[in-house]
Amino acid sequence: MAKREIPEINAGSMADIAFLLLIFFLVTTTMDKDMAYMRAIPKRIENPEPPLPIEKRNICLILANSQNQLMVRGELMTDPDEISEKVKEFYTANEKVNDPKNKFPMYSTISMSQIEQKILQAEKELEETENTPDVMPEIVEFKQAQWDKWVKKKEALEMLGKPQLREIHFQAHVRIEVQKNTSYELFTKIHSELREAIFDLRDEVANDLFGESYGVIHKRYISNEGDKDKQVEASEDKKKIDLLKILYPDRFIEVTPKK
């Protein structure tokens, strides 16, 4: 059979097709990132028990009213940029030495042997509740969480490399109370300042302990987390982050406005 020449396909319109696709994607997509402050909403409880009384020194109260005026720990504040300084002071005032005279949360000290005792105790309690017939799953969950907490503290102290772990009072928290007409701008400003304060504090410790900033560790952890080959590094970074979170916990309470 005679050899037939294959006619060349005209690829001249290929560029047009590609341009069409390109323009479609340019129109339907955006490049700007969505940035936000993530907050957990507390679980709804059917019949809440009356809350335990909390010492005033353990609350960092941030008030914002409908006229967008600010009050932090009982002092009027005209410049919202100062919130982060106040929050930092709240966290660090008693960090080195406890001073019962001031109005800031106390720090407690715990040693390795004490933590190990607590782990054993939590383990025993967990086992007991699991073996109790007809036990509510919430209680088992709670005991499990208790045990996890102590194990995490042990890891944190190992990471810290000091004989003792100094921790802020377990009730110390930041309480945000706004009114219904407070602007969203001020509300997010408060969150921004809180985030900045916590970030700065963690940065400082991270630089002392590991020679790199919290931001760097956190970013690397996020990028390594999903990578199967980098699990070792990710778990190491996770431990570092856990320690920093124990030292400066982000405990924020947002109160639903009544008026």
């Binding site: 990132k33 940035m35 900045e196």
Partner: peptide, 11 residues
């Protein structure tokens, strides 16, 4: 949108 620092990326 209001402005803020150190927000988390939602991407």
């Amino acid at each position: 949108q209001p402005e803020g620092v150190r927000a988390t990326d939602m991407t």
